[in-house]
Design a protein around this nucleic acid. Structure first.
Length: 292
DNA sequence: CATTCGTGGCG
DNA sequence: TCGCCAAGAAT
């Protein structure tokens, strides 16, 4: 594929795009930001119900800033990676205090906020404000690897190179660029998936470099499978789940029962305290931050 | 640049 | 069953 045929993808988007709440015209920039944070490493199906609860409860950043971190962690529930919720609370506080309660529109300022990196900053600038900039997530990387480079899958991420790759195929029109980015991501999510890709339904089938090359297998460096069972991540999750399930502060014994390995358990509790996800009360009880 | 950080569903 | 995967960021 020498040059991406934008019309094919834009046309497909019109007929195939999912009707997600954060894509509706009445969705605020804050709503878009919340969705982007929640969607990091997390499937749409699990995000959607929580997103509705959040926007109903905290329609603007200042509303969330007025809530405690513990309250935010409870509302986050089991979405995973709870530090995202903490950082979003921090970001909401900064937006309310420093930006007039308006989510910033330029990539630079967005990236300066906690929890907002290269992808999320560009996603908000593009999807909430219609700006023209490259948006690179795992879906886009995979689609570009196949359709443009003819590889079976994307190699290890490289922020600078990945950005250049996508900038090279971005439509010149600002309006098209925003839809194009959304469509690229949608294609990766629905058609050009990691496994069991649906090439027969792909709008780029005829010009896809991977198809034209005979769909060679991924040739890059081996990807390390992420373990979970037995990791600190699992232990931290169990500890935090106790606090989420309790109405208030709990004695340490309640935390001790969730994991047998004392050394690992204590290490994880300390790390949760370090991250500000857990606090100790005056009475030596353990609580979600701000809930005592 | 490589690791760490949750959780659950699916083939 | 269990490895793999799901809109990344911070360090």
């Amino acid at each position: 594929m020498v040059a991406m045929n934008h019309e094919l993808l834009l046309g497909w988007w019109d007929t195939a795009a999912r009707d997600l709440p954060w894509r509706r015209p009445d969705c605020t920039a804050w709503g878009v930001l919340v969705s982007e944070i929640m969607l990091q490493q997390t499937p749409v199906s699990r995000v959607e119900p929580i997103w509705h609860e959040w926007l109903a409860r905290w329609p603007v950043p200042s509303a969330m800033a007025a809530s405690s971190q513990g309250e935010v962690l409870r509302m986050w529930g089991k979405l995973g990676y709870p530090r995202r919720a903490m950082r979003l609370h921090e970001a909401a506080t900064a937006i309310a205090r420093d930006h007039g309660d308006v989510v910033p529109s330029d990539v630079e300022t967005l990236e300066s906020l906690p929890g907002i990196g290269s992808y999320t900053a560009r996603a908000v600038a593009t999807f909430a404000y219609g700006q023209k900039c490259a948006v690179v997530d795992t879906n886009v990387r995979r689609v570009v690897a196949r359709a443009v480079h003819g590889a079976g899958d994307a190699g290890p991420p490289s922020t600078k190179r990945d950005l250049r790759d996508v900038e090279a195929i971005l439509p010149s029109s600002q309006q098209d660029a925003a839809v194009f980015s959304a469509a690229l991501m949608e294609l990766g999510a629905l058609i050009c998936t990691a496994r069991n890709q649906k090439c027969a339904d792909c709008p780029l089938f005829a010009e896809c470099a991977w198809q034209l090359a005979g769909r060679p297998a991924y040739a890059g460096p081996e990807k390390k499978a992420q373990k979970f069972a037995g990791t600190d991540r699992q232990v931290r999750g169990k500890l935090l789940d106790v606090l989420r399930g309790a109405p208030g502060p709990v004695p340490k014994m309640q935390l001790d029962v969730v994991w047998n390995d004392i050394t690992q358990r204590e290490k994880c509790l300390v790390s949760l305290l370090d991250d500000g996800l857990v606090e100790v009360t005056r009475d030596g009880l353990f609580a979600l931050p701000g809930e005592h």
